[in-house]
Design a protein around this nucleic acid. Sequence first.
DNA 1: ATATACATACCAGCATGCGGTATTAAAAAA
DNA 2: TTTTTTAATACCGCATGCTGGTATGTATAT
Lengths: 217, 217
Amino acid sequence: MARNKHPEETINLILDVAFCRFMEKGYEHTSIQDIINNLGGLSKGAIYHHFKSKEDILVAVTDRMTKESNRLLADIRDRTDLNGIEKLKAIFKVSLNRPVQEKLFTVAPNMHNNPKLLFSLLKDTVEEVAPKYILPILKEGISDGSIKTDYPEELAELIILVANVWTNPMIFNSTVEESYRRFIVFGQMLKGLGVDIIDKEMTERVRRLSSIYQKNK
Amino acid sequence: MARNKHPEETINLILDVAFCRFMEKGYEHTSIQDIINNLGGLSKGAIYHHFKSKEDILVAVTDRMTKESNRLLADIRDRTDLNGIEKLKAIFKVSLNRPVQEKLFTVAPNMHNNPKLLFSLLKDTVEEVAPKYILPILKEGISDGSIKTDYPEELAELIILVANVWTNPMIFNSTVEESYRRFIVFGQMLKGLGVDIIDKEMTERVRRLSSIYQKNK
DNA sequence: ATATACATACCAGCATGCGGTATTAAAAAA
DNA sequence: TTTTTTAATACCGCATGCTGGTATGTATAT
């Protein structure tokens, strides 16, 4: 294949293919050759020109995954028309409704094959999402009186970790009803911590999302 | 090396070495050869005689890790001198005080290198510990009136997952004070869910445990 | 005698390294 | 402006060493 005038296209192609392979077969069971075979003519040299290792590809893939999701969170965080607790509620509402979520479910990744990718996302949740997006919102909520806690840092971690991990059917497989009940208990947990934001519309949305996921499994 | 009259010793030796290597270098970065080199003369044939694959070794290692901990839980679950909520409290008290916990901290395993091992433990927590040990206790608590919830299955998962994962410094690195605050927020969460079992003695124990871990890191 | 507990030799597949080539953009020369 | 030079980039594909795993051999315990 001839040299590409726009190498970013090549990089994106590699990431696209790698993402799909990782999701379908898992990171560990995807070989570089496997990626190459789905690259449409590109070779091993191309990959190692743009990425320094297989792991480097994984990092790039996960970065791309979290980046757009985090942009969404940043938008809500920086709004001025909502108070703290309203922003928190908005985050969950938007997260549940973004199309990417359905798209991801359609690819139906089985995180059981992907401990490495899973852990990257876990790490991102605690080390990036919690302090950069949830914590500022909680602090704002404390200021404006809509949220009460003595430990905003820890509360931010707990909330987003439980939401992103435990209620995630890609990680902990569950039936539609189990997902639904998990989300309800999650809501009770939040309420018990003084953050009452989960409403019927959201729990129903979880039911729908979960059934979409089940169908594509 | 000649044939061993007690093959279980060989098995245990392999598991001991593998455990250490996995903890130090991570499962993925530990090669079979690496294990062999620390086996004192044993060869590849020995390993593949007792274990069918590298992954099989990992499973055996994690099984050995969880087995004794689960026995502890079973003992409490089957006691007749405590009601539901007292058993739950006993579980956390005992878990925090067992010597194995300190021993494990002394090896100071870094779960960041071990997504696969971590995920095994995660899976065990949700699929074994929650339904087999925590759930029966919750149900007993519902019967005797000491615990109230409409979703005992999910509550069991949530409680033990947050306890085992989020408050675990081996997984989510944290300072002594952060560990302490996490555990307090965990206690608040439980209280909010109608399970008030975390007392001062336990939070102080967390502080001590965490400082032991920090020292050995 | 035979099943068990290992040892040894070997294999296919893997990630990665690397010498080489084609293409492009930029600078220099015309 | 056009042409030539230069150097950096994009890519190729085989070589290499290591990996998990297997096949087969051998000695020992029962």
